[in-house]
Simulated scan of single mutants.
Amino acid sequence: MLQAGIIPVTHFQQNCTVLFDTETMRGVVVDPGGDVEVILQTLKDNGITIEAIWLTHGHIDHAGGAKELKQHLEVDIIGPHIDDKPLLENLETQAEKYGLAMKVDNLLPDRWLADGETVSFGAHVFEVYHCPGHAPGHVIYFNRAQNFAHVGDVLFHGSIGRTDLYGGNHEQLLDSIRTKVLPLGDDVGFICGHGPGGRIGDERRSNPYLRGL
């Protein structure tokens, strides 16, 4: 059975997510933004073996700990879309901009992702949707079998991703939500990059940023 656990990391309180199978206890880490020692200890405490690191996008709070975690776990980094290459090549600059003291290394993933691809671990298959607007190369991961999505910073409970950072575009983000996220279905539950998750239908009905979509 597919299960998800959230590890809030760094002062951004970003939802580093562990997706894993409850029978095999194997899974992936999504968006290890930092506090790598906390992530590693959590994996150890719960007996979870990680097969890969998945990134939704290249902002420091989501990708800042990815290279260090890769070195510890000896697994591949997968995603995001190649349009986030400038962000990932400048993670150290992002850290300086925000005055972060944590260890950060620029990186390139072992595999870029494109819209319409799939990624998986064990029997759990996730469809990949390229959803630019918050970041140029942002992707979301959708597991159709469990009606579950990890939407990163595209959609939040009661809000949407900010668009005032590098490559951000408000209209493009709304278009991504309208054409990629909402069509997944009202019953789909989601985890997002910060704060509580929810259901797409609830956001479609009550999220003020989605009016008219």
Score class of each variant (00 low, 15 high):
M102I: 12
C16G: 05
P196K: 12
G99F: 12
V36D: 04
Q14V: 01
G198P: 11
V128M: 06
G197Y: 07
G193N: 04
A63P: 11
V38Y: 03
D110G: 15
E203V: 11
I82W: 03
A66C: 07
L87F: 11
I6N: 01
N46I: 01
H11P: 01
H81G: 05
H59W: 09
V125N: 05
Y209F: 15
N90D: 15
L73Y: 11
E89A: 14
F148Q: 03
E68K: 15
N106R: 10
T10I: 08
G79P: 12
G47V: 02
I48P: 11
D175R: 13
L69V: 11
E89W: 01
A114L: 10
D187A: 12
G137F: 12
Q146H: 14
P8F: 05
D35V: 03
P8V: 04
I6C: 03
I6R: 09
R199W: 12
F156G: 09
P86W: 05
G27M: 09
H62N: 15
P80G: 10
T49Y: 02
R199H: 14
D105T: 13
V104S: 02
G99K: 09
A145D: 14
H157P: 00
Y129A: 14
G185L: 05
H134C: 14
L108R: 14
L173Y: 13
D110E: 15
G27S: 10
E203L: 11
A145T: 13
Q3R: 15
F190L: 04
Y98P: 00
H150K: 00
L184W: 02
K70F: 04
W54L: 13
G122L: 04
H72D: 01
Q146S: 13
F20R: 00
P86G: 08
H72F: 15
L19E: 02
A4D: 02
S159M: 02
D61A: 14
V125E: 11
